[in-house]
Amino acid sequence: MSGWLKDKGHLARMAGLFAFGITAFLVFRWLMVPAGFGLYGHYRAGALDDAGARPLHYAGRAACEGCHTDIVEARQGSRHARIGCEACHGPLIKHAQAPTEVKPTRPDGRVLCVRCHETNPWKPKGFPQVKVADHSDSGPCTACHKPHAPKIS
């Protein structure tokens, strides 16, 4: 080797090796990072479509309230009015799309209530709770409470 590279040949090779490594990394990155990454945020833009393509299960409260105006009325002023319909009735989009063909089953008037109202010290103080065993016999809670407006009296 001649000229100013004379005693720098090995360094030039090492620099070349680094340049190769960095280039290989960039090429690899270009190959591996999916298209659309970072378009809207730190994720693959196509993930939105993928998520959107997944089947829906819940119709949402607004859909139910459009047809079942009687229930909306029944719930008015009750502390249950803030709970989404499908929190108790389960996912019902199929019913909302074809109401007469898909008929929902009525929720169990005991199992359902106990799920939310059994006493548990971890629940906030203001949350209405009962010791179910003391509070009622083994019949349905709906024998005394109306599910859409549970306050008695």
């Binding site: 080797m1 005693d7 040949g9 090995h10 090779r13 090492m14 090796l17």
Partner: peptide, 8 residues
């Protein structure tokens, strides 16, 4: 050695 044996 990256096949460079310059140890001047």
């Amino acid at each position: 050695a990256l096949w460079s044996d310059n140890i001047s």
